[in-house]
């Protein structure tokens, strides 16, 4: 099954980190991505720019409404994601638990990808 692991964390924590802390966290992400690529779990993934760069788009009565900022203002924000292939939810949870942000005060939301009949 395919799962999307959504990484939620307080995005203000990154600029507050010392250079060493930041370097360490980045190194952990690099090692994690290599690991799950080797184990065959990795399908894709990206880090996202902070929500200050976000634009939210809605179409109402045929009119495109564009607003500055994320869909919802929350204490923790979507900061990145991994798309993974996992045997089942247990396998996906094990992968998600190894995402560095899960340990660094953040939370990972694991969502199964919907499959439509062909």
């Amino acid at each position: 099954m395919k799962y999307l692991c959504l990484i939620y964390e307080d995005e203000t924590m990154w600029p507050k980190m010392s250079k060493e802390e930041y370097g360490k966290a980045m190194g952990e992400y690099g090692a994690f991505t290599r690991d799950i690529t080797e184990s065959g779990h990795f399908l894709g993934g990206n880090a996202l720019q902070p929500t200050s760069s976000a634009t939210t788009v809605r179409v109402r009565n045929g009119k495109t409404l564009t607003t500055d900022g994320p869909f919802a203002e929350t204490k923790e924000q979507l900061g990145g994601y991994y798309l993974i292939e996992a045997k089942d939810l247990n396998d996906a949870i094990q992968v998600a638990a190894r995402i560095p942000s899960a340990r660094l005060g953040g939370a990972i939301e694991v969502r199964p990808i919907m499959v439509f009949g062909s």
Partner: peptide
């Protein structure tokens, strides 16, 4: 069914 919770005994580690 939807989240793929397996019908399984957990691994020794879990």
């Amino acid at each position: 069914r939807d989240a793929g919770i397996p019908y399984a005994i957990p691994d020794l580690a879990d």
